[in-house]
C-alpha cells in the first residue's frame, strides 16, 4: 500500500446491553482503514451504526470485539489525538470564541503565547476573525459549528472526527460549510472521518466513502469517487457538473434503497 493509514478499524463489533438480558448488535465485524491526510466519509441509512463506529474511534464507546488502532496505538478511551465535532452545538457558552478555541491547548499545557497565535490562525481559517471576542450565544448555528471546528483543529489532533456536523444547519449554510471543510483539509493536512446520511455531502467531501448497511451495521462497500481523479475541489457547483458525479449518486441511492427496503 502506498498511502500510510492513520487509523485502522479491525474486526470491530459493538453490542449494547439494554438490561433485562436484552441486547442489540449495533455494529458487526467491521474492518477498514483511513489513509493519512484523507477524508473518509461513513455513509449509511439511519440505524447502521455509523455514529457508533465514530464514537468508538473517539474512545467514547468501547468495542465489544476487535480493536481500533491509531498511529500504532490501540484506542483506549478519549484523547487529544482524536478531536471530535458533534452535531449538537458544543460551544462553551461562558467563554468568548477565542477562549473556546484556546481551551484544548490550555488544558494540554500549551504556553499562552503559542496558544494565542494558534487560536488566531484557526479562527481566521474558519472565517471568524471578526468574531473572536464575541460569546457563542451571539453567533448563528453555522458560526458555532465553525467555532467547534476551529477549537478541535487548534488542539492539533491526528484525526478529526465529525458526527453529522452540519445536520442542524440550513441548506446553503450546509454547503458553505462543506466547501470550508475541503479548504481546511487542503490547508491543514488533517485526516478526517465524517459521518453523514447525506449522499451529496458524502460525494462532495469524500476521498473514500465507507458504506454501512443497517441492523446490524456491517461494511457494505468501500467506494473511492474516481470521477474526482484524486483532486479535491472546494466548489460544489464544479463537482456536481463533473462526469461521473451522477453515476456515483445513483449508485449510492441504490445502496440506500436496498437498505431501506423492509425497514420503513
Amino acid at each position: 500500500m502506498s498511502e500510510q493509514s492513520a487509523l485502522q478499524i479491525r474486526n470491530v463489533s459493538k453490542v449494547f446491553e439494554l438490561g433485562g438480558g436484552k441486547s442489540v448488535q449495533a455494529v458487526q465485524d467491521i474492518s477498514f482503514e483511513v489513509e493519512q491526510n484523507s477524508i473518509c466519509v461513513l455513509l449509511g441509512p439511519s440505524g447502521c451504526g455509523k455514529s457508533t463506529v465514530l464514537r468508538m474511534m473517539a474512545g467514547l464507546e468501547t468495542p465489544s470485539d476487535g480493536d481500533i488502532v491509531i498511529g500504532g496505538r490501540t484506542v483506549d478511551g478519549p484523547g487529544q489525538d482524536r478531536g471530535m465535532v458533534f452535531q449538537a452545538y458544543t460551544s462553551f457558552d461562558w467563554m468568548s470564541v477565542r477562549k473556546n478555541v484556546e481551551f484544548g491547548m490550555k488544558i494540554n499545557g500549551v504556553p499562552a503565547a503559542a496558544r494565542a497565535e494558534r487560536a488566531e490562525r484557526f479562527i481566521n481559517l474558519v472565517g471568524l476573525g471578526k468574531f473572536a471576542d464575541v460569546y457563542p450565544s451571539q453567533l448563528s448555528g453555522g458560526m458555532r459549528q465553525r467555532v467547534a471546528i476551529a477549537r478541535t483543529l487548534a488542539n492539533d489532533p491526528e484525526v478529526l472526527l465529525m458526527d453529522e456536523p452540519f445536520g442542524a444547519l440550513d441548506a446553503e449554510t450546509r454547503w458553505l460549510m462543506q466547501e470550508l471543510m475541503v479548504n481546511v483539509a487542503e490547508q491543514t493536512n488533517t485526516t478526517m472521518v465524517i459521518v453523514t446520511h447525506d449522499l451529496e455531502e458524502a460525494i462532495f467531501l469524500a476521498d473514500k466513502i465507507v458504506f454501512l448497511s443497517s441492523h446490524p451495521g456491517r461494511l457494505k462497500e468501500e467506494i473511492k469517487p474516481a470521477f474526482k481523479k484524486g483532486e479535491r475541489i472546494a466548489d460544489k457547483e464544479k463537482v456536481v457538473k463533473l462526469d461521473g458525479y451522477g453515476d456515483l449518486e445513483a449508485h449510492l441511492m441504490r445502496l440506500m434503497r436496498e437498505e431501506g427496503r423492509g425497514t420503513s
Binding site: 474512545g59 487529544q80 458544543t90 462553551f92 481551551f103 488544558i107 494540554n108
Partner: peptide
C-alpha cells in the same frame, strides 16, 4: 449539563477532574 459538552472536553484531552472543574 449536556453530555456533548463533557464528551467534547474529553476528546480535547481533558481528564475527568478537568472536565468537572472547567466544563
Amino acid at each position: 449539563v449536556r453530555q456533548e459538552l463533557v464528551e467534547t472536553a474529553l476528546t480535547l484531552g481533558a481528564s475527568r477532574a478537568t472536565v468537572v472543574m472547567k466544563v
